[in-house]
């Protein structure tokens, strides 16, 4: 904490090396948030840059009431939300009900499966992690933006419910509930796509 404070003071005093070290330390977190929330590949890196420019410009206003990672995460999240608003992407969709039936009646599910060449895999084929992850990433991309952000912050950045809540301005209970629902839905999609024996 003391080191962090020292680094912040150095950056405010104009030490660009200290700022570069900060970018190196937090680029992974920012990249996770931005890449998961923004689908347009061409804009992603520029948005990541925007986040760090904002971090630099507002660092003197950081009051250290939260962790620096949470504060940077919030800037990243809000920058993405503003970008998506500009692009008129619907932000507050809810999940399709997880109990939508084995036929995959959710429109997202159908649209994805329609694009899969050959449809479901044969029972005697085993699924490689790589293939399953690819499928999973595509399924995650279909989720509403808030769910994507929560899944990423929890599983890729190991943030707690409270920290995620601070970043997204959501109560801890909501974060936990969204996380549960998203994982349950994804698990069901995996089972629908790959019958259980393929996963062993």
């Amino acid at each position: 904490m003391h080191q962090e404070q020292e680094r912040i003071e150095k950056i405010i005093a104009g030490d660009m090396r200290a700022f570069q070290a900060l970018v190196e330390d937090y680029q992974r977190l920012v990249c996770h948030v931005v890449f998961r929330m923004v689908h347009n590949e061409e804009d992603r890196e520029e948005i990541c840059q925007d986040v760090f420019v904002k971090v630099y410009q507002n660092l003197s206003k950081f009051e250290q009431k939260s962790k620096l990672s949470t504060w940077i995460g919030r800037i990243a999240y809000n920058t993405c939300i503003n970008y998506l608003k500009k692009k008129k992407v619907p932000l507050y969709e809810d999940l399709a009900p997880a109990e939508s039936g084995e036929s995959g009646s959710s429109p997202n599910k159908e649209s994805y499966l329609d694009r899969v060449p050959g449809g479901a895999k044969l029972a005697d084929e085993t699924v490689s992690d790589k293939e399953m992850y690819k499928f999973l990433h595509e399924e995650i991309a279909q989720l509403p933006v808030q769910y994507r952000a929560i899944l990423t912050l929890y599983h890729m950045d190991d943030l707690s419910y409270q920290e995620i809540g601070e970043i997204m301005s959501l109560p801890d209970g909501t974060v936990k509930s969204y996380l549960f629902r998203a994982r349950k839905l994804l698990k069901e999609r995996i089972i629908e796509k790959y019958p259980a024996e393929e996963l062993w």
Binding site: R28, F35, Q49, M132, M156, R183, I191
Partner: peptide
Amino acid sequence: TYKQLYRGLADEAGFMLSANF
């Protein structure tokens, strides 16, 4: 199945910034 899902959720493939970021 959940374990596999958790591993997939932590998979970093595709999350890469340019080298001179």
